[in-house]
Computed example of a mutant assay.
Amino acid sequence: MTIDLTSLSVRELNQLIRTAEQTRKALVSRPPAEKVKKQLTALARKAGYTIEEVFGEGTDGGAAPRTRRRKLPKVAIKYRDPENRRYTWTGRGKMPRWLASKVRFGQDPVDFLVPGVAKLTPKAAPANPKRKLFKQG
């Protein structure tokens, strides 16, 4: 780790030295992590627990346990480029570049639907349709 000390003023250098000395004292005065880990394990064992029961399953030194993500099903291809069959899209997520460029030049996404497999998804109705107000009177 290198710090450019030439750009610091005398006041900033003194402050940096004080902060470094305080941090060093704090680090030197505390016991090593392995020693604390052994003490915690012994204390838990004395009380009749295991470390896993106290801190939860899958703990490795206090790290939070990982949650597993739900496995998503495969989705059928909905759009395919007739010029390059490798370019496909399931219709989910952001529109791919190849299809966006074709749409920008005037083609319709319906032209790229895979025949027999894909159907055009109808647009969802708006959540709050605009209401018409009529004056009474």
Score class of each variant (00 low, 15 high):
S9F: 04
K102C: 02
R24Q: 09
K25M: 10
V110Q: 14
G93S: 02
F105V: 12
L72G: 11
V117S: 01
K38F: 11
R104L: 12
R30C: 11
A44W: 00
V54D: 12
E21C: 14
K119T: 09
L133Y: 11
L13E: 00
L72S: 10
P65Q: 13
R104Y: 10
K37I: 08
L72P: 09
V75N: 03
T2G: 13
M95P: 03
R92S: 10
T121E: 15
R80Q: 08
N84R: 10
W89E: 00
R80P: 00
T121A: 15
L120K: 12
A118W: 01
A64C: 15
T121P: 03
A47I: 04
E53R: 11
K46M: 12
K130E: 14
G58K: 14
G61P: 04
V54L: 15
I3T: 06
K94V: 07
R92H: 14
Q107D: 10
K119Y: 07
S29D: 11
D108T: 11
T23H: 05
Y79M: 03
K135D: 13
A44N: 06
L5R: 03
A127H: 10
P82I: 06
L13F: 00
P32R: 07
K123Q: 05
Y79W: 09
L8D: 02
V10M: 02
N14W: 01
V36I: 13
K38S: 13
N14A: 07
A118K: 01
T50P: 02
A124V: 04
F105P: 04
P122E: 03
P32C: 08
E12Q: 06
T50L: 04
P109Y: 01
R104C: 05
K123S: 07
K102N: 03
R86Y: 07
E53P: 02
T2D: 12
K25W: 06
A127L: 08
L99E: 05
L113F: 05
G56P: 05
R86H: 11
I77G: 04
R69Y: 13
D111Q: 11
G137V: 11
L5P: 02
A124R: 09
E52S: 10
V110K: 15
P31G: 01
E12C: 00
K119L: 10
F55C: 09
I3G: 00
G56E: 12
T59I: 14
V36G: 04
L13Y: 00
A26M: 07
S101N: 07
A33I: 10
A127W: 07
P96V: 02
V75A: 05
Q107M: 03
A118D: 01
D108W: 04
G58R: 09
R80D: 00
L113P: 01
W98C: 00
K123I: 06
R68A: 14
A124G: 09
